[in-house]
Write a protein that binds this DNA or RNA. Structure first.
Length: 853
RNA sequence: GGCCGCGUGGUGGAAUUGGUAGACACAGCAGACUUAAAAUCUGCUUCGGUUACCCGAGUGCCGGUUCGAGUCCGGCCGCGGCCACCA
């Protein structure tokens, strides 16, 4: 029995693909293209199972589309800037560049061992000046186009590491690395004006039909459009007014106080005069932004003595508080409090003894809201509201908006939750922001002739803060405008910037301009993008913004970069804990015959925990390298595609892997053992084949149809099942085959091409064993004969009263009367009817008969 | 708290979108081959009623629409995700 040696065979075919350069893509205007892209990896050092799943899915699509005749582009690169490289430098003394490029070399080799149909000539790394230099050019274009701004904004500041932290890096109010209490600081930051596209980014979500509904919804919520109104409350004793934003202007008559954010200019003014107010502001700024902090935080405030007039009823004066629950960067940083109809305002009013005046009641029934113990946020009719009384909430909003406009006291407006994208990071290992600060000229862009602004190599990590800041010379430059001494911007860009345009750079990865228009016009948009759901918001939203910004600067023609998006599930594995509660690696365990588990070394008992997403911290990881080494890439790929639908989480099991390995061996035997016996099909197919021959041909053509449909729909697990089934069918004819041996040959030729996208190495070996000279990677997808996928007979289900009582094998398209007769002739049907007469008979052609008794 | 998903055998999951529930696989059991084991092959495998046949129940729970519901509608229960003091 011949055994398939994956290790040798896989290396051989990987070399053949590479030597024949079949995956190198070239734009061919007029020929249909297909751009397959998986989210590029961060070069952490080793690939993990999540990568294996991601790139296997993409590779199936790429190879399948190629077989379908598309001009496929399938590139790979490295999201290579980021904090871990700097941490490695601090902890191990390795330069970030060295660490990163070493990791890339490792991971490239690992990815290559997977046998991916990738055009490696297009490989890019975002940390290379040949990439980030062009990113600086785009930045300057955006700056010129008014898409970049410099803004004072509140940031999380780690006083020990002396850097800004992203929200995700603040854990329980402390820096994740230093453990220091994080402060809120105002810093001048560069921002992309993503909010300028808020409406468009929201609107266009509707056109992304090949995106998961869930992702679109998440983006919709993230952008968070709300319709409301600005309202101006004149300040008593001053010329100015306090401007607030509300979505409930219908409840304006229920106002009982005003509340300002601690960062509001009026709050600051008050703080300068009153130490108690200043103390309260300081306290608000210290307040954590974590989930628990927010949940526990009480609604608190301080009356700053200011009074405003109600805009509709000037006789009423309202107190102005600073409140800890009002955010500066949403709306205007100030609200009016309507305790009866907002829970936060209700809590606040209760605490400070402010009036609670209901102005909306169900059906206008004032009694129903006379004594509230929580805010009433439901619908109803207006009460206690002068000219609004009796109106619905919606009508009252409209009427109030009209009134505000009349009085010049406010106007309807739309507000978004989306904020501008702060891109400044006080870090070394990122793309330098190409601007210069000059005392006399202000902000001066780096002249394009001076690009790229290259990161200096000679940096030190021996003290906290940004190494670019500590560098003795790098930041000192002459102002390009006036020539006097000036300072280079030492902040670098958020790494999300790097990944916001890489799909465009892949189209012309070596060009001396960022993007070559003819190339992107041919290849973009990405037809199928594949990656984890964790990027559902930020990366995908940023890329959508970037596309629009690049279009505005005439670099690309598309608004939407990703036509189709697929979000894969995670790879999970059981977790193991020792008796003293420490996590254990699967390799540290020994499995006993009785099904128990213990530690291999010590023999101590082990608790098997639930299956969770593979992570180093829980030690429930399986190294893909070891699996590929032992079983081959095809086995790993096949297992990834089997059983679990790709969008769902899957569980990695030893049994599953060995099952995949056994099946690959089975396929190999089946093909190699039958191949010599079966001749190729004659040009003119004979009609006189026997029943077995016809059955095999039908199975072949149905499988071709079903596998194609399954791959089209991303149901790779179903495609796998159909191939299993087909292999069994062929197996059942191994002893006594059809008289026409070309029928088996036709089946094998189809079979190999059907599993080629999934197990490409085995497929090449099988294809050549079958006597084909070319590569199966370049073979056409088999076509099915529509006549052969329709059987002559159909199984008709006969139900009596909705319960299945018989199954009849009848000729296809038999007329209704004959079907009825056959149904009533069935013993089981007669018995089930028990002498009753049929009240009604429903006949669904070629499917079922339901006798209603 | 808001919004959105999902609940199918021992397990992962199928089910032409309202028409045979459990394809395919894993695990398990039985058998063949073998001195034996491994490997391989064959069969069985939702639960209950004595095997075959057949009967009853069955897609989280309760109800509804329909000749017919895993699929549609209403209400519960459970699990998960995203956002979250967003005015």
């Amino acid at each position: 029995m011949s055994r398939y040696n994956a290790k040798e065979v896989e290396a051989k075919w990987q070399q053949a693909w590479s030597e024949q350069r079949i995956f190198e893509a070239r734009a061919e205007p007029g020929r249909p293209k297909y751009y397959v892209l998986e989210m590029f990896p961060y070069p952490s050092g080793r690939i993990h199972m999540g990568h294996v799943r991601n790139y296997t899915l993409g590779d199936v699509v790429a190879r399948y589309r190629r077989a379908r005749g598309f001009n496929v582009i399938h590139p790979m690169g490295w999201d290579a800037f980021g904090l871990p490289a700097e941490n490695a430098a601090r902890d191990k003394g390795i330069h970030p560049a060295r660490w990163t490029y070493d990791n890339i070399a490792n991971m490239r080799a690992e990815l290559k061992s997977m046998g991916l149909a990738i055009d490696w000539t297009r490989e890019i790394a975002t940390c290379h000046p040949g990439y980030y230099g062009h990113q600086q050019k785009l930045f300057l274009d955006f700056l010129k186009a008014g898409l970049v701004d410099r803004k004072e904004s509140a940031v999380n500041w780690d006083p020990v590491d002396q850097t800004v932290l992203a929200n995700e890096q603040v854990i329980d109010g402390r820096g994740w690395r230093s453990g220091a209490l994080v402060e809120k600081r105002k810093l001048a930051q560069w921002v992309f004006r993503i909010t300028a596209f808020a409406d468009e980014l929201l609107e266009s979500l509707g056109e992304l039909e090949r995106w998961p509904a869930r992702v679109r919804l998440m983006q919709e919520n993230w952008i968070g459009r709300s319709e409301g109104a600005y309202v101006n409350f004149p300040i008593v004793g001053r010329d100015s007014a306090l401007k607030i934003f509300t979505t409930r202007h219908d409840t304006l008559f229920g106002a009982s106080f005003m509340a300002l954010s601690a960062d509001h200019p009026l709050a600051r003014q008050a703080g300068e005069k009153d130490p108690a107010v200043a103390d309260f502001i300081a306290e608000c700024q210290r307040m954590g932004t974590t989930e628990e902090a927010i949940e526990k935080a009480e609604k608190r405030g301080i009356d700053i003595g200011l009074r405003v007039r109600h805009p509709i009823d000037p006789s009423r004066e309202l107190p102005v508080y600073i409140a800890n629950f009002v955010l500066m960067d949403y709306g205007t940083g100030a609200i009016f409090g309507c305790p009866a109809h907002d829970q936060r305002d209700f809590d606040f009013a209760t605490r400070y003894g402010l009036p609670i005046v209901p102005v909306v009641a169900p059906k206008g029934d004032a009694a129903a809201v006379a004594s509230l113990d929580t805010a009433y946020v439901g619908d109803g009719l207006l009460i206690n509201s002068g000219f609004l009384d009796g109106m619905t909430v919606a009508d009252a909003k409209a009427a109030m908006a009209e009134k505000l406009r009349e009085l010049d006291a406010g106007e309807p407006t739309v507000t978004f939750r989306l904020r501008d994208w702060g891109l400044s990071r006080q870090r070394y290992w990122g793309c330098p922001i190409p601007v210069i600060h000059c005392e006399s000229c202000g902000i001066v862009p780096v002249p394009e002739s001076d690009l790229p602004v290259i990161l200096p190599d000679d940096v030190t990590f021996d003290r906290p803060g940004n190494p670019l800041d500590h560098h003795p010379t790098w930041k000192h430059v002459d102002c390009p405008s006036c020539g006097r001494a000036a300072r280079r911007e030492t902040d670098t860009m958020d790494t999300f910037v790097d990944s916001s345009w890489y799909f465009a750079r892949f189209c012309s990865p070596r060009a001396d301009v960022p993007i070559v228009r003819e190339e992107v016009d041919y290849w973009l948009p990405v037809d199928q993008y594949i990656g984890g759901i964790e990027h559902a918001i930020l990366h995908l939203l940023y890329s959508r913004f970037y596309s629009r910004a690049m279009k505005q600067c005439d670099w690309v023609s598309v608004d939407e970069p990703f036509d189709g998006l697929f979000t894969q599930g995670m790879v999970c594995h059981e977790t193991y804990k020792s008796a003293d509660g420490a996590w254990l690696y699967p390799e540290e365990l020994e499995w006993l015959e009785d099904g128990g588990v213990r530690e291999r070394q010590s023999g101590k008992p082990v608790t098997v925990g639930r299956s969770e997403s593979m992570s180093k911290s829980k030690k429930n990881v399986i190294d893909p390298g070891a699996i590929i080494d032992k079983y081959g890439a095809d086995t790993a790929r096949w297992f990834m595609l089997s059983d679990s639908p790709p969008e769902r989480d899957m569980e990695w099991t030893d049994a599953g892997v060995s099952g995949a390995w056994r099946f690959s061996q089975r396929l190999w035997r089946q093909i190699v053992e039958s191949a010599p016996r079966h001749a190729a099909a004659p040009d003119a197919l004979p009609n006189d084949i026997d029943d077995a021959g016809l059955a095999v041909r039908r199975a072949t053509h149905k499988t071709i149809r079903d596998v194609g449909a399954a791959i089209d729909g991303f149901h790779f697990n179903v495609a796998v099942a159909r191939i299993h089934e087909f292999s069994r069918v062929l197996g059942s004819y191994e002893g006594e085959g059809p008289s026409a041996d070309w029928v088996i040959r036709e089946a094998l030729d189809a079979l190999v091409r059907l599993f080629a996208p999934m197990m490409p190495h085995l497929a090449e070996e099988a294809w050549s064993t079958l006597g084909h000279s070319g590569l199966v990677a370049e073979a056409e997808w088999p076509a099915f004969d529509p006549q052969l996928v329709v059987d002559d007979t159909v199984t008709i289900v006969v139900q009596v009263g909705g319960k299945t009582r018989a199954k009849l094998e009848l000729a296809r398209d038999l007329d209704e009367r004959a079907v009825r007769e056959a149904a009533f002739a069935s013993d089981n049907v007669v018995r089930a009817m028990a002498g009753k007469t049929a009240r009604k008979v429903i006949v669904v052609p070629n499917r079922l008969v339901n006798v209603v008794v």
